[in-house]
Design a protein around this nucleic acid. Structure first.
Length: 281
DNA sequence: CTTGGTTCCTGCGTGC
DNA sequence: TGCACGCAGGAACCAA
C-alpha cells in the first residue's frame, strides 16, 4: 500500500532515469485503468512524447511530458511502477508498458487493478480528482503545528479518519497513521476536537518523524510495494504496531490490539494509547 | 456543509 | 488435499 514515502522513493529512483527519454511504443493491456480517455487516444498522445520530469503530489505520481501534457498515476493498493531493460523479465500483473527510445520499458503492474491513470493537458492537472484537493504534506512548510491544531479543532470526526483524509494532510495512509498515533500516544478513536495542545504537538512531531524515517528506509514493503527498480523497502522492520496484532508493543510490552476505525484495520497499544488520553497528560 | 458506509479488485491465509 | 470464504484498503460515490 504505497503511501507518501513509498511514492517518493519510486519518484527518486525513476526521475533521473526517465528525464529526457522519449516514449516510442505504448502497450495497453487493461484499458479500464485509464480513466479519462480511450486506449487509442492514450497511445496516440504518448507515442513520441518526451519525458520532462517525474513529480509527486501526495500519493500521486505525475509524469510531465513534452507538448504540455501530463500522465498522472495513482498506485492505490497494489500498483507498481518500475523500469526494466530490454533484456529483463517484465514481471507479473503487467497492465501497461511504455517502451522508451533507450530500449528500456516503463512498466505499470497492478495485481488488484485498483490503480488509475489520467492523461491530461498540463494546465488541467488540477482536474484530476485526487490532485484537486490535497492538504499540506508532512515535512513541508505548509504543514505546521498551528495548521494541525486549527484543523483538528475545526473537525468533528475521529482522529483516525482525519489523518487518512488527503484534503487535511496529504500522503498519509493506513500504515503511517497507525504508527504516528502510536508514537504520539493517541487512541485512534479520539475525537479530533478533544485532542489537547500537548497531544497535537506530539502528533505533529510523530507524523514528521515517521514519514522521514520511512523515506530514509526507502519505504515499507508489507505485501506488494516495490521501488522504481523493483526492490522492496526496508521500513517494515521499524513498524511498532501496524501488522503486529497480538505482538508486544515495543514500548511497554502490552499486546497490540486490532480494531476497525474509519472502516480500516487499525492497530494500537491499549496501554500506550488509552481511550481517555488522560493517562499521559 | 460534514461524515459514514459501500464498492471496486484479486491473491492469500484460514478453516472445515 | 481441496475448496469456499473473508480480508487487505485508497478513493469515488452515495446517503443521511
Amino acid at each position: 500500500m504505497p503511501e507518501m514515502p513509498e511514492v517518493e522513493t519510486v519518484r527518486r529512483g525513476l526521475a533521473p532515469r526517465l528525464s529526457g527519454k522519449t516514449i516510442v511504443a505504448v502497450d495497453v493491456r487493461l484499458p479500464r485503468l485509464i480513466k479519462n480517455c480511450d486506449r487509442e487516444t492514450f497511445a496516440a498522445e504518448l507515442e513520441g512524447a518526451a519525458i520532462v520530469e517525474l513529480r509527486r503530489a501526495g500519493k500521486g505520481l505525475i509524469l510531465e511530458l513534452s507538448g504540455e501534457r501530463a500522465l498522472a498515476i495513482h498506485l492505490r493498493m497494489t500498483g507498481r511502477l518500475y523500469l526494466r531493460s530490454a533484456q529483463e523479465e517484465e514481471g507479473k500483473a503487467v497492465r501497461i508498458v511504455l517502451t522508451l527510445d533507450s530500449g528500456e520499458r516503463l512498466i505499470y503492474a497492478d495485481v488488484r487493478t485498483l490503480g488509475t491513470l489520467h492523461l491530461v493537458k498540463l494546465a488541467e492537472l488540477a482536474s484530476v480528482s485526487y490532485l484537486a484537493k490535497l492538504g499540506p504534506e508532512p515535512l513541508s512548510a505548509a504543514f505546521s503545528l498551528a495548521y494541525l491544531r486549527k484543523t483538528l479543532a475545526a473537525n468533528r470526526g475521529r482522529i483516525k479518519g482525519f489523518l487518512l483524509d488527503q484534503s487535511k494532510i496529504a500522503g498519509l495512509g493506513n500504515i503511517y497513521v497507525d504508527e504516528a498515533l502510536h508514537r504520539a500516544r493517541i487512541h485512534p478513536c479520539r475525537p479530533t476536537a478533544d485532542v489537547t495542545d500537548a497531544e497535537s504537538a506530539r502528533l505533529f512531531a510523530a507524523i514528521n518523524e515517521i514519514i522521514q524515517t520511512a523515506i530514509d528506509n526507502r519505504g515499507t514493503t508489507f505485501r506488494d510495494y516495490v521501488d522504481g527498480e523493483g526492490k522492496k523497502g526496508n521500513n517494515q522492520q521499524f513498524l511498532a504496531v501496524y501488522g503486529r496484532t497480538d505482538e508486544p508493543c515495543p514500548d511497554c510490552g502490552t499486546m497490540v490490539r486490532k480494531i476497525v476505525a474509519a472502516g480500516r484495520g487499525t492497530h494500537f497499544c491499549p496501554r500506550c494509547q488509552p481511550e481517555t488520553g488522560a493517562r499521559n497528560a
